[in-house]
Every structure is written in C-alpha cells, then in structure tokens.
Write a protein that binds this DNA or RNA. Structure first.
Lengths: 229, 229
DNA sequence: AATAATTTTTAGATTAGTCTAAAAATTAAA
DNA sequence: TTTAATTTTTAGACTAATCTAAAAATTATT
C-alpha cells in the first residue's frame, strides 16, 4: 500500500523500514548483510526478506545478488539516513516539547519517521534549535544525511588497549545508574580497556586514569562509548 | 496493511479515511450517505467503496444495507471524530509552532492524523493550550469526541441582507485558499449579503464593510460562516 | 572430496485494497 | 406501468506484502 502514489520517488513504509534495518545492520555488523540477519531484525521470515530484497534491488536501492548478501546503494543509504534523521528529531520533539520520558518515545517515533514532508522536517529541526544528538545519545544526521558525531558502540564491542569515552547507557534503570555512580563511571569519562577475560568476556578497565575496576559482560553490554582518538 | 497489528482495535489508514469521509458527508449532506458520494469524496470507484463498506460493516463501524446507503455506528463516529481531532490539532501545531501557512498544512495533517498514540494527542493538545478551533476555523473535538463550538453553515445557504462571520472552508485546496486570500476573504471577516442573483445563485457581498465583490455559487458552497448576532 | 548442516531462494497460497466490466437493483420518465 | 437511465453490487483480476513448505545453494565437517 502506497501512501502517496503520485510521486514516483515514494517508498512504502515497509520499504523504508527495510532500508533502515539494513543501514543499522551495516553500522553494527559490517559491510555485507545476510538475509537471516534482516529477517531477525525485521521480525519476519527469510522468505519475505528475499521477496523484498528483489523489489529493493529493482528500485536500485540496494546491491543484491542471490545468496551473496546485501549492501545499500547511495540512493538507498540516503533514504535510510533521512528516516533515521526524522526518527531522532521526532524523539527529541517528544522529550523536549511534549515531556515524554526517554523510554516512551520509540514506538511513536517509529510511526512519525514515515511522515513525508521536507518542509515539516526542516521546520521541526529549526523549532528544536538544530539538535545534534537525540535523547538516547544517538547522533542526528543533518539535512544532507551527514553525521557530524560518531555513533556510539556497546562497551562490550571494544578490544584490549582501546581507550574510549563513555557517551550513554542502554539500560536507564535507576538500579543500573546507581551502580555506575558507585563505580565512578559517568558521562564523558575515559575508559581504558586493560584486559578482556576470555572465559566470560568481562573487562578490566581504568576509569579516568585513576582507578582500575572489573566490569562484567552484562554491564559492558549496557554502556555506550566512542573510541577516543 | 496494518501498521500496528498487535492491537485488535486498530484500523488501517484506509479504513480511517473512509470513516472520516462518511462523517464529513453526513455533516454536509444529511443522514444517509450513498456509495457514489463516498466514491467521489475518496476519489475512487464505486466498486471499491462497496468492498470497503462490507468490511466496515463487518467490524460494526457502519450501518449498511445493500443499495440502502450508509450511516456511522457510535463506534465508527468515535473513530471518525478522533481522526478529525488529530487532523485539526496537527494543523494547529504546524501553523502555530512550525510557521506553516494555512494553505500548506492540509496535506501533511492528512498523514499525521493517522499516528496512533493517546499520550501524543493529549500532550499535543496541552502543548497547544487546548485550542477550540483549527487554523481553518473548524472546531476541534475534545478528547471525548465532543464539539463545543456550533457548526457553521455554507455561505450559499444564507439569504439577502444576512450579515455573517466567515468561520471556515469546505475545500481546503491551496488553489481555493489562495483565491480567498486574493478576494480579501479571511477567517473571522464579516460578509454582508447585499444581493442573491436568482439566475445562478451567485452573491453580491460586502467584505468587512470595505469592498464589494461577486461570489459564484460554486465558491459560496465552499465557504463556511455563522450568522452575526 | 563427500556428506551433513545451514542458509537462502522458489513455489504456491493468503489478505487488504484496488480496478474494469458486467449484472442486478433502484429510481425516473414516458 | 412498462421502459429507460442511473446507481450499486458482483465477478474476476491485479499488486504489495506476507506466510509455509520444499528445493537449491552455500558452508562446515568429517
């Protein structure tokens, strides 16, 4: 079902969601994405994904060869980024202007991200004073789809000897935040990975060049950080 | 295509648009609505309308008997009013907060009216300070679907010597709104009917006690007004 | 290299929404 | 009141998106 069939440039909501999913998988997992990975992310079946990949390839939104996985074309990436931009701007709007809590915004933003109006997006951006990061700490692409701030990763994904900056959390529960407080881990602090224990993926890290602590993999999977360069 | 299939109370965009169209036709034309009238309003074919009417009747959203026309059930009316409420609140938001012109908002509001989140609507209403009328002068139903402001009449229904206040339009197309702008007809302005030409039902009117213009019946049928008392 | 396990694709069916063309019902006119 | 015109409904077909089950291709393991 097309919402706006009069413009040939239009994608359906579903197509937009597939492009967004592929973009996010590339961001996390690497450059070529498998059918199964998409199926899992979209909570659908591999057969449905194959069908959609053919359609997206016909429209030149992805590079796709049977059994060989998927990458985005520049056209496809542009659309994915515009959806992400809209999603994050709307999240910002919901939190800043309508006083939603951080954990209430996602579902609504999933709907709002598909509203199609360039003027709407640009005016919203202006209304919010051109924010660079959304309420979850994720960067907001600009009107040209450019990300000025690097995307954060899970602390659990970094390697031995990496030095990074803490940028956010996945679990926002007060219990977890209190644990971080106690451990001396705060937004913006430096985390140097001294060692990764092979057996349980726990980390030995130095916080702010001051004190050494151990962090379980469960905790590391709930901390966001970027590489310090 | 269902956007949110987890809730059994959900309608598709299309179903919502049919309910809204039927509500508006009842408002203008009378109590029982024909298949053709809906087809014209929805810019689709009568056969498609019949298909949809069956589906809406199955869901108890309309009263429908073959060849006998359609009315809304209270459930159907409730949904129609909630869509209209959302449409008009979003129009208000676009004009007041994002500085859209009144003839630019309709198309975007047509999309936004289908966003499904009770919290979003209530917070938006609050953010806009609970407006009672939208930028086109149409009343905004409250959270319970109640309209507090009296409904306007078509300008074409008034008589010689009536003095009325312009409250809104039927045709929201930017072409028509631009015509009104040019004619000096705006929300809230006074329209005094000097003469009704019998032959074609066109009107000679004075706008704001300032200038006299002629209005065709076609135009008069698209202007809403209330009697000035 | 041959076999087993896994992943991916095809084949065929389903649903919502749409269409055209033809049939049936209603309304208007002679 | 029978015929003509109009409106409405059915019948059958199409597309986008989905599914299950089976076939084909790829990858991993003896």
């Amino acid at each position: 079902m097309y919402i706006c069939s009069k413009f040939s440039t239009m994608q359906s909501f579903t197509e937009e969601n597939y492009l967004k999913a592929i973009y996010k998988l590339i961001e996390q997992e690497g450059d070529v994405i498998t059918t199964n990975a998409i199926a899992e992310k979209m909570r659908t079946k591999a057969a449905s994904v194959t069908d959609m990949l053919k359609r997206l390839a016909d429209k030149k939104l992805i590079h796709y060869k049977k059994y060989q996985g998927v990458t985005l074309t520049s056209k496809g990436e542009k659309i994915a980024l515009s959806i992400i931009r809209k999603h994050r701007l709307w999240e910002m709007f919901l939190v800043e202007k309508l006083h939603f809590k951080w954990d209430e915004v996602h579902e609504v933003a999933e709907q709002l991200e598909h509203i199609n109006s360039d003027k709407l997006v640009e005016q919203l951006d202006k209304f919010l004073s051109y924010p660079k990061i959304d309420p979850h700490g994720d960067p907001i692409p600009d009107a040209k789809g450019k990300l000025t701030i690097p995307k954060s990763n899970l602390l659990s994904k970094f390697n031995k000897h990496d030095v990074c900056i803490m940028t956010g959390v996945v679990d926002h529960s007060s219990g977890f935040l209190q644990y971080l407080d106690k451990a001396g881990i705060a937004l913006g602090c430096e985390i140097k990975i001294k060692d990764v224990v092979e057996f349980d993926r726990s980390l030995r890290v130095v916080i702010n060049k001051e004190h050494t602590i151990f962090i379980s993999n469960d905790v590391a999977k709930n901390i966001l950080a970027i590489l310090k360069k």
